[in-house]
């Protein structure tokens, strides 16, 4: 019960903080709309038909990932700058539990991206929003967002030791978009990249969302999303413990 209270309070507080940040407005609304527009025009310029909803969903997921990534990367760094990282580490609950709601709030804010690209696509490009399996879409979207939030938690834990977390965030945005096949098929990539794609929750998440919207099997990719989300939670619990211990031992927790 106490854990739930910690999660609820942290989630609510971080959501309010993100709501006042112009950077997150840019990442979760403006940037996905710009990328969706680029993708729409590229698909229009090409000869591939019936792909505008495909592009809108992919651009939306790109925004979810960007928000999660920059939120998770920034989470530890901002706490360092504000001097609250030590308080989080010293609090009685496990550090992973303290930062879990922050990461979930980041991913939740990313859902604005999906809404923004779908509304933008509908209003400006006249995309039909006829979902093949609406209820499965409603199930697949939050499951994917939560899995991404948990993946962000794993990233955030590594940033306890890495002082240049923001730079790593800048680097990881495009590779995950590419490896997850958010707006194009991963069959265009070399074969050796397949295992990387399979290990990424966004890869399965976009499959589940796309199949729910355009038709196709949803349950298998959805099961993989849940499985990878649980794996990320377990890994982040362990990594938070290890990296917190290492940072305490080296006295580098608050060093910027």
């Amino acid at each position: 019960m106490r854990s739930l209270k910690v999660v609820y309070s942290g989630f609510q507080m971080n959501l309010k903080m993100l709501g006042t940040s112009s950077f997150f407005l840019l990442t979760s609304v403006v940037q996905p709309v710009i990328f969706a527009t680029i993708a729409f025009y590229m698909f229009r310029a090409g000869s591939r038909n019936g792909t505008l909803l495909y592009a809108a969903l992919g651009a939306g997921m790109m925004g979810v990932w960007s928000t999660t990534l920059f939120g998770s990367g920034g989470m530890i760094q901002w706490q360092r700058w504000q001097g609250t990282l030590e308080l989080g580490a010293a609090a009685p609950p496990a550090m992973a539990l303290i930062y879990l709601p922050f990461s979930l709030a980041n991913a939740f804010t990313g859902m604005y991206a999906m809404a923004a690209t779908l509304v933008w696509g509908r209003l400006v490009f006249g995309i039909g929003l006829h979902l093949a399996h609406p209820w499965l879409f409603v199930l697949a979207l939050p499951a994917t967002v939560i899995a991404l939030g948990l993946m962000g938690l794993v990233l955030a834990s590594t940033f306890i030791l890495y002082r240049h977390a923001n730079a790593l965030s800048n680097l990881l945005e495009y590779p995950v978009w590419i490896a997850s096949g958010l707006v194009f098929s991963t069959s265009l990539l070399p074969v050796w990249t397949r295992p990387i794609s399979w290990a990424l929750p966004p890869y399965w998440g976009i499959l589940a969302i796309r199949h729910a919207a355009l038709g196709g099997g949803v349950w298998w990719p959805l099961a993989m999303v849940v499985l990878l989300g649980v794996a990320a939670l377990v890994i982040s619990t362990l990594t938070f413990r290890w990296f917190e211990h290492a940072a305490r031992a080296r006295a580098t927790l608050s060093l910027t």
Partner: peptide, 14 residues
Amino acid sequence: FQLIFFTKLGQYAH
């Protein structure tokens, strides 16, 4: 990675 992303997207969109 931006270069790879847009080149592959263009290839996919024909």
